[in-house]
Nucleic acid binder design. Structure first.
Lengths: 241, 241
DNA sequence: GCATGATTCAAACAATCGTTTGAATCGCCT
DNA sequence: AGGCGATTCAAACGATTGTTTGAATCATGC
């Protein structure tokens, strides 16, 4: 029977963290199912049985990987948003400010070179589209409050956007954020022109926020659908917005 | 020694396709590493050895899964774009038109209920953030021409956007597209308000295109960075765009 | 009708998987 | 010192992994 939640009297101050760090790195670069506990324990330089001793199972391990990062990250997001709202003194925030409250904490995590925060962001970006059995509940549980609070903030920041439309735009926003912060280069889009500052996270946020803000504030789509496809008239060109 | 590329004289008109379909479905709902060949062959109702006989290995199988879908999909995108450009008769396209050329073929694939196109789009959305060893080259090879041609189209559709900035915005655009078309509900964002028509792909495109077009046409970010964070002045609110 | 090549099949291959075990080791307490 | 709980360790567990084998089955050629 492994230890309960009792703090280790003196034993292992770093064994659990070493396992978490190694698992984070390997899950990121190989995926969950393709990463063996032996590869994790080898990278962490701990005994194979240490994983089951400290975490119980492989499934609990990946859950612990996300728990360690997601709690502080989302709390920082909520704190950042609350601070901006207090400073605004009742006035609704600009959409850019709400976006920044969402992105900046992740950026700060990515900045820290000591911890491998960037690796976690890539892992998170992939996990958002992974319906893996093992962490069916962990992401929704961590993000529930964030989604709720930021939806309120966006509703007040964008009063002219109907709520249904806003939810969809938040969906698109989170997608672009996850993709951008995960640093996906699968399409080698960057390589086609070798964009400058690709590795600078702050440059990304400076370009991402205006992009998303403009999308959030876009004019509402027509309810009737003119089926803009293959319409031979030329006024579908230029100056659509 | 398995068969070369020779067309099967009469033997198996459907065994390979059954394997591809089963693999597509299982890779989507379990991930690559977590899906065993036995699970695939069981779902496809073929013999276990059929995978290695027809495809050579598990890695070649997932590569074949993407090859089967990505070729026609991206060709349809290129055709759609070329047709719109011909109809425009030299005039630059609207950004919305270029976006539609990118999205509509995927939408059509998703529509087909006979084939499990929607499942493939979810698989593709996840694969974009998977640096899996097995398909390191398959995605870039398929997308190289698409990225190149659509970049040209976007450059002409958005002449006021510098090329570097445009590349970044295409990056964000593809991220939001992948996320939206993959139907990611990991955050249960939709569930918070149960958005209407969540399952209707055409409704998604009608909301996604204006969102992305506005982002692509957004005013350029300031080159100097005023460090908009925790700035106590209130003019960061309202009317930023 | 029978040889031929492609395909399917049941069975087994070695390897690796996650997990468990029981003894050895460590650090701390009275 | 010595006992005690927490932790580490080497070794093994049965189960499952991807892959291979060789015979059986099929359709087709002459």
């Amino acid at each position: 029977m492994p230890t309960l939640d009792r703090a280790p009297s003196r034993g292992s101050p770093e064994t659990k963290d070493r396992i978490l760090a190694a698992a984070e790195a390997l899950f990121m670069e190989q995926g969950y199912g393709s990463t063996s506990l032996r590869a994790i324990t080898a990278k962490a330089k701990v005994n194979l049985a240490a994983v089951n001793y400290h975490f119980g199972s492989k499934g609990s391990l990946i859950r612990a990987v996300f728990d360690r990062r997601l709690g502080p990250l989302n709390q920082a997001r909520l704190d950042h948003l609350r601070r901006l709202e207090r400073e605004a003194d009742g006035q609704p925030l600009a959409p850019e400010a709400v976006l920044e409250a969402m992105i900046a904490p992740a950026l700060q995590l990515s900045r820290d070179p000591l911890q491998q925060g960037a690796a976690f962001l890539r892992l998170l970006g992939r996990a958002l589209s992974e319906p893996a059995e093992t962490m069916k509940d962990v992401l929704p549980n961590h993000y529930r409050e964030v989604v709720l609070r930021f939806k309120e903030a966006f509703v007040r920041a964008l009063p002219h956007v109907p709520e249904q439309e806003l939810i969809w735009r938040m969906h698109f926003t989170f997608g672009a954020m996850a993709y951008a912060m995960a640093g996906n280069d699968a399409l080698q889009l960057i390589a086609t022109c070798d964009a400058e500052g690709a590795s600078d996270p702050e440059a990304i946020i400076r370009r991402l926020v205006p992009f998303l803000a403009a999308g959030l504030e876009a004019p509402l789509p027509t309810l009737a659908r003119p089926h803009a496809s293959h319409s031979p008239d030329t006024n579908t060109n230029r100056q659509a917005a």
